[in-house]
Design a protein around this nucleic acid. Structure first.
Length: 291
DNA sequence: TTCCAGGTATGCA
DNA sequence: TGCATACCTGGA
């Protein structure tokens, strides 16, 4: 894969098996903006970039080749061989095969753990447009301003910035009853009771138990943070859509306990469970499987 | 007006 | 342990 800077645009190619739109819009991240049919602006790592995909080339603006190598390649997970992952999944059964082939260009983003944690705490009992709105509001109120093409944006606040906010102030960003959970997360992280940076290396079950200490973090939110923010690709977040699609295809449409689905997925997909989950989720949500 | 959304905590049997 | 219910908010 080549990373070249030309006319202030960093071109990465070839990005095989990758689809920018599906990767951003498959529900794993919330802090981006579609500015036209071609362009997305992404706010992360204290920066704003504008990204476009033309065939198997990814064009990144407002960045540098060094930054792309060290930040955005990891963010988009472009160093990983998704061709190999998908080949392995396709051999498992015709169900996962259908899901993979439905949106074969989905990659699992590697997001910043703190933003990922707060975003998925916000996500409970909310629809995606609302989640995005709360994240925008929190960023505008507490995050650092960044400028691009004469527009001002805000990136998501750091822990140091967000811990200054009171529960009442967080509620002003329309977080509702989740505000107290955000405060609890900030307290546990800033006191050192939980150290997100250490959760990368811990075994997944230990990392999950740490996350579950935070109020408002249950199994679903913890698994999302493990998968999208901490690189634990065995994590299999079971939201309402994943539950529906798993019951529909693997349990004869019968109401099935989350623990049963969890064990089944671990056995069936093993170390690729997180990838399988993402393809199944998008497939189920788009086609309204099981609803 | 009422219901529901990508969940979780709480109370009660 | 299992189930029902409430919870901010906004859109359908």
């Amino acid at each position: 894969m080549q990373i070249r800077l030309k006319n202030d645009i960093v071109k990465v190619s070839p990005v095989l098996d990758f689809n920018l739109q599906d990767t951003l819009e498959c529900g794993q991240c919330f802090h981006f903006e579609k500015v036209s049919e071609q362009y997305y602006r992404i706010f992360a790592f204290g920066k704003v970039i504008q990204v476009q995909q033309i065939g198997d080339t990814l064009l990144i603006e407002n960045s540098s080749d060094i930054e792309v190598k060290h930040i955005w390649m990891h963010y988009f997970d472009l160093y990983r061989d998704y061709g190999d992952i998908k080949n392995k999944l396709l051999k498992i059964d015709s169900i996962i095969q259908r899901a993979v082939e439905y949106k074969p260009g989905i990659y699992i983003l590697q997001q910043e753990p703190f933003e990922c944690l707060i975003s998925f705490i916000i996500s409970q009992n909310k629809q995606i447009p609302h989640i995005k709105a709360v994240i925008r509001n929190l960023s505008a109120a507490w995050g650092t301003k960044v400028h691009y093409q004469n527009k001002e944006y805000s990136v998501f606040p750091t822990l140091a910035q967000l811990k200054e906010a009171s529960e009442e102030q967080i509620k002003e960003s329309k977080a509702g009853f989740r505000a107290k959970y955000i405060v609890d997360a900030c307290e546990k992280l800033s006191s050192g009771e939980i150290d997100l940076s250490k959760l990368f290396e811990l075994p997944i079950d230990e990392a999950r138990s740490q996350l579950l200490k935070i109020k408002g973090v249950g199994n679903k939110v913890a698994d999302c943070v493990l998968l999208y923010g901490l690189g634990h690709h065995r994590a299999f977040p079971k939201d309402v859509w994943v539950k529906r699609v798993m019951e529909y295809f693997y349990f004869g449409g019968e109401n099935t306990k989350m623990e049963t689905i969890e064990a089944f997925a671990a056995e069936k997909f093993g170390e690729l469970a997180g990838f399988a989950q993402q393809y199944l989720f998008y497939y189920a949500r788009d086609l309204k499987i099981g609803k």
